[in-house]
Amino acid sequence: MELHIFDDPVLMRLGPVPITETMVTSAIVTVVLIGLGAVMGSRVRSGRSDLLSTLALMTVESFDRLVEDIVGRRQTVVATIAATFFLFIAGCNLAGQLPGVHPATGSLATTSALAVLVFFSVPIAGIWSNGLWGYLKHYFRPNPLLMPLHVISELSRTLAMSVRLFGNIMSGHLVVGLLVALAGFLVPTPMMALDLLIGLLQAYIFAILSTVYIGAAMSVGEE
C-alpha cells in the first residue's frame, strides 16, 4: 500500500493542468451529492413521503434551525453553505472508507481551499449584512490598536480549521492503512469505525465553526 501524506498523486494531465487523485475523488463525491440531492429534492417536490424525502426534510430543517440558533435569525444562504460544508466533508470522509480511495479531506489542499472559502465568506457576509464601514469598524473595537490581533485571529482560525480537518482525516486514514498493511483486513475494523465517527464529527465541527464565524461577522453591528 502506498501512503501519500502531503503530496497528491497526479493521475493524468489535461494539457498543463494536472488531474490529481484528490480532484477525482472530490469530483465524484460532488457528482454523487448533486445527484442524490436532486433525487431527494424531486421526491420532496413530488410530495412523496419516503425515506429519502424525510431525510432531506430533516437535513434541511436541522441546518436551518442550527443556523437560526447561532446567528439569531433565519439565514438560508448561510445554512446552505454550512450544510454543503458538512455534506461535502462527510461525503469525502465516508468515501475514504472505501478501499483504495484517498479521502479528499486528507489533502491539505482541499482543507485549505475550504478554510479559505470560509475566510472570504466571513467578510462578505459581514459587509452584506452590516455594510462596508459597519463591518470594517469592528476591527477597531474596542481599541484600534487591536486591529492586527483581529486580523491575526481570523488568519489563525482559518489555518486552524484547515489543519484540524486535514490532521484528523489524514491521521485516521494513515492509521487504518498501517493496520491493514501490518495486521490484515479485520484488525483495523474498530479503527475504521472510529475513523468514520471522527470524519462525521469533523464535518460537523467544520460546519459549525464556519457558521459561527459567518454569523459573528453578520452580527458585529448588533454588539
Binding site: 493542468v17 469530483a27 489542499a109 481551499a113 479559505v116
Partner: peptide, 13 residues
C-alpha cells in the same frame, strides 16, 4: 498539483 487541487477544490465546493 497542489495549487491546481486547491483551486479545483474551491471551485468544486
Amino acid at each position: 498539483p497542489i495549487l491546481t487541487t486547491f483551486l479545483f477544490e474551491a471551485a468544486n465546493f
